[in-house]
């Protein structure tokens, strides 16, 4: 089933591209953060797709399975273990960013990046 893998790789590329577009060009900060979470999801999907084996079985050794049959048919479990960590990291990063946004909203009353993050550069101009 090469088609499945191709579709999944295309999906992960699409997620990364959509996320990058949102993170760079969209003005609203919440949407920027949503875009960043899409980049992370795309990367995770790509790494899971590496471990996938077409027509294989879940990499859990059940009692009664033949070990050599299992070794040649199971999916590769190392990428799955990595993705578990990466998902949790992504969620915690998202939480910290949203917390910073909530603090900054109280000061500026807007979610626009141009207004919210512009003042640091203004400060620099003033200094020069």
């Amino acid at each position: 089933m090469a088609q499945t893998q191709l579709a999944i790789l295309l999906t992960s590329v699409a997620l990364v591209v959509i996320g990058l577009y949102a993170a760079i060009f969209v003005d609203n900060i919440i949407k920027k953060i949503i875009g960043i979470s899409f980049i992370e999801e795309g990367a995770n999907l790509f790494i899971v797709a590496i471990g996938y084996k077409a027509g294989g079985v879940v990499p859990i050794l059940m009692p009664g399975m033949d070990t050599s049959w299992f070794a040649s048919n199971a999916a590769y479990p190392l990428p799955f273990g990595l993705v578990l960590t990466s998902i949790v990291i992504g969620a915690s990063t998202l939480a910290v960013m949203l917390a910073l946004v909530m603090v900054l909203y109280r000061r500026y009353g807007t979610l626009s990046t141009k207004v919210m993050l512009a003042d640091t550069s203004k400060q620099e101009e003033y200094n020069e």
Partner: peptide, 28 residues
């Protein structure tokens, strides 16, 4: 894709925690 453990985590984080966090931030 034969990764049930990742699927469980992603179901909790991706379908529940992340939207709830974003919704909370939007509410505030």
């Amino acid at each position: 894709l034969l990764a049930p453990d990742v699927a469980l985590t992603q179901a909790i984080v991706g379908a529940a925690i992340v939207p709830v966090f974003i919704a909370l931030a939007v509410q505030k």
